[in-house]
């Protein structure tokens, strides 16, 4: 079975778009993350339910009009988010 990715619940995050970067405060860890697209979009796409990488990519294409979405790059972003604890592998 493909790995599922689960994001921190949206009520545990404070999202403050600053300019091209978005500041995100994670209540559970007390950490602040400064993120560029598509990391905030990934968190939002995963907010409702855990998804595997393929389904996430499809959702990002539809919701955010991501035309040149690259599966490998997406995995790399997800790995970064897992390291921060904002996303958990299931």
């Amino acid at each position: 079975m493909a790995t599922l990715y689960r994001a921190a619940s949206s009520d545990s995050l404070i999202v403050a778009p600053i300019d091209v970067l978005t500041a995100i405060y994670h209540r559970a860890s007390g950490q602040t993350h400064l993120m560029a697209s598509p990391a905030p979009e990934i968190l939002e796409a995963l907010a409702d339910a855990p998804l595997d990488a393929g389904a996430l990519l499809a959702k990002l294409r539809v919701d955010y009009d991501l035309v040149d979405a690259d599966p490998e790059a997406l995995i790399a972003r997800l790995d970064e988010l897992v390291e921060t604890g904002l996303v958990e592998r299931r």
């Binding site: 404070i14 403050a16 600053i18 500041a23 405060y25 007390g30 602040t32």
Partner: peptide
């Protein structure tokens, strides 16, 4: 960091 959410809110 020590101010946690209060620090984030104040600074943003």
């Amino acid at each position: 960091v020590a101010l946690a959410e209060r620090g984030f809110t104040a600074l943003t």
